[in-house]
Design a protein around this nucleic acid. Structure first.
Length: 565
DNA sequence: CCCAAAGGCCAC
DNA sequence: AAACGTGGCCTTTGGG
């Protein structure tokens, strides 16, 4: 048996670390263990290959690992080591540098290795933040202390602490989901493709069903050489056939009456399946029964996640049947019902809206108040309010909702006004929207000139409204992302406790999509996993909104295949 | 030859 | 039951 670092240490209780800061290069790392007062208990250098052993030794004390999760954690997972908590220095830097509550403290800090900027922005950081050119990354402990000081000095330190903890837990979950992979049955996927497209073909070859549809389209349009994948060619061919079209979008084409239209719409649908999620996709992204999307935590300005590789956030419903639990395992599929309007009700402390959503579908509840006629109207109206609709069905319904729910609708209206004026807004936990570009400001300045021409005025007003729609949506989408992070963080903890052994032997997260999670779980604990999902949603609601009575109901299904949820 | 924009469509 | 928010990624197209 090997002794843990703590057991080897003769100091006993004083050696239990509260935080462990991991710093250094790919080859050699520096480890500093801190006690709860921030004092350094231990400071040593070691080869990076020894990190798993070191982490395993300290982890029984549940320290918060202070590090760059994306750089350190995948290697640990590969070595079979899972950690409970961390503080992601890179993600925290990104949030704190932009947050209204802390930005000032980072304004003089040069853009360095803790800033996660795309390569092209690194060459010109001054344009981004008005800062000096790139500097060497600060020492991790120095950066950690700076971040802590910034949080403590903020008007609402608790909110920022929760945000950083949730974001960091998200980073752990993202690495773990990559490690575990989404169970993917290539044979099921291939059956779907064959059914819809015909037998498998090589890259660059049109599947048989597409060839057949193509022949019909060419015939109906008398365009024997038409390539329907080219919008330019297609629009010409449609016009030559006497059809009045502005574009080749399916929505527009669907309204037309012509023999070419049905096969063309079918062709577009199947061509998309073939190119986006066809055999090429399967070969490229699915390996040994797993699809491993690369989650980019906080990759969206609002705090939502992005993904790279395989388009994981656009898995079309058509192929979800391929997502199938392993033998003896089940999938728990859960999504939050009407998440964004509920989050808005919580932020606005809107008791009327909260009551409408209490114990029932929120949109049904809105109908019950008499504000609108039916559920679809309630839904389009609320989405219109969140997106800033001014026209169409949504736009017409917004005023009616504003009358019935002045608090919620007032909150998004105010956020829009702030954006229109070029200012920033923040989420409930304190993530701040990026300010508008210098171009945007120049356009607004140009419009204030006494002799501004009408074109410049129109342009400025249009840009202002656009920025208003962005900030309007930012506060709600961003706070919903915070709810989802808290949900996932709590769920991750509960799932771990439902099993024993390695991560892949216990119930674990395998997919996350804004307001939806998939858990892969041994059959025997599937119901407990489903219950954990529900309880975690309650906890997330409390973390964000305290005692305010807003529900976050879920649709939960325990299934063999994602398509059955 | 590479690369970015445009058009389009998938997800929430 | 749209033209209103956030994204990724495919093909075509045209510029260097």
């Amino acid at each position: 048996m090997t002794l843990t670092a703590a057991e080897r240490d003769s100091d006993g209780a004083s050696s239990a670390p509260s935080h462990v800061v991991i710093d250094g290069t790919r080859e050699r790392i520096r480890v500093r263990a801190l006690d709860s007062g921030g004092r350094v208990l231990e400071d040593r250098l070691l080869p990076a290959v020894q990190l798993p052993t070191l982490v395993e030794g300290w982890e029984p004390f549940s320290p918060r690992w202070v590090w760059d999760t994306a750089a350190r954690y995948p290697g640990l997972l590969a070595a079979g080591v899972r950690v409970e908590r961390c503080h992601d220095l890179r993600l925290a830097r990104g949030i704190l540098r932009r947050a209204a509550a802390t930005a000032e403290r980072f304004a003089a800090i040069p853009v360095d290795g803790w800033d996660d900027l795309p390569a092209e922005q690194r060459t010109a950081p001054a344009a981004l933040f008005g800062l000096e050119p790139e500097a060497a990354p600060a020492d991790a402990l120095t950066e950690f202390e700076r971040q802590n000081a910034a949080v403590e000095a903020a008007p609402r330190p608790g909110a920022l602490r929760l945000l950083l903890a949730a974001e960091s837990a998200g980073a752990l979950a993202a690495a773990e989901m990559w490690h575990a992979g989404l169970p993917w049955r290539a044979d099921v996927h291939e059956r779907i493709l064959e059914q819809r497209l015909g037998p498998r073909v090589g890259d660059g070859v049109r599947p048989a069903v597409l060839e057949r549809l193509l022949a019909e389209i060419r015939e109906a349009l008398t365009a024997p050489a038409l390539n329907p994948d080219s919008p330019v060619e297609l629009v010409k061919a449609l016009r030559a056939a006497g059809l009045v079209v502005e574009s080749t979008r399916s929505r527009e084409l669907a309204a037309l009456e012509h023999p070419a239209i049905p096969p063309l719409l079918e062709y577009k649908k199947l061509a998309r399946l073939a190119s986006a999620n066809g055999w090429h996709w399967l070969d490229r992204w699915v390996e040994q029964g797993r699809f491993r999307p690369d989650y980019v935590v906080g990759g969206v300005v609002t705090g939502r996640w992005a993904t790279r590789n395989g388009g994981a956030m656009q898995l079309p419903k058509q192929i979800r049947a391929a997502v199938t639990a392993d033998a003896g395992w089940r999938l728990v599929v859960a999504d939050a019902a009407q998440l964004e309007p509920r989050v808005l009700a919580g932020m606005a402390q809107d008791r009327s809206m909260a009551k409408a959503g209490h114990g029932r579908d929120l949109y049904d509840g809105i109908v019950a108040t008499g504000a609108v006629a039916d559920r679809t109207a309630a839904k389009y109206g609320m989405l219109g309010a969140l997106y800033g609709a001014t026209q169409g069905t949504g736009g017409r319904l917004v005023p009616r909702l504003a009358q019935r729910f002045p608090q919620s609708l007032g909150l998004v209206e105010r956020a829009a006004r702030i954006g229109e004026q070029g200012a920033t807004v923040s989420t409930l936990l304190g993530r701040t929207s990026p300010p508008p570009s210098e171009q945007w400001r120049a356009a607004q300045r140009a419009a204030t000139d006494l002799d501004a021409d009408p074109v410049a005025l129109r342009r400025a007003r249009s840009l202002a409204r656009e920025q208003g729609r962005f900030t309007r949506n930012f506060v709600v989408q961003g706070t919903a992302a915070e709810w989802a992070l808290c949900w996932m963080a709590e769920l991750r903890k509960r799932l771990w406790e439902l099993g024993s052994g390695a991560l892949h032997e216990r119930p674990h997260l395998v997919y996350f999509l804004h307001d939806e999670v998939l858990v892969h779980t041994p059959e025997g604990v599937a119901e407990q996993a489903a219950q954990a999902v529900r309880e975690a949603a309650v906890t997330a609601g409390r973390l964000l909104f305290g005692g305010f009575p807003i529900d976050f109901p879920l649709d939960v299904a325990v299934v063999d295949s994602y398509a059955d949820a």
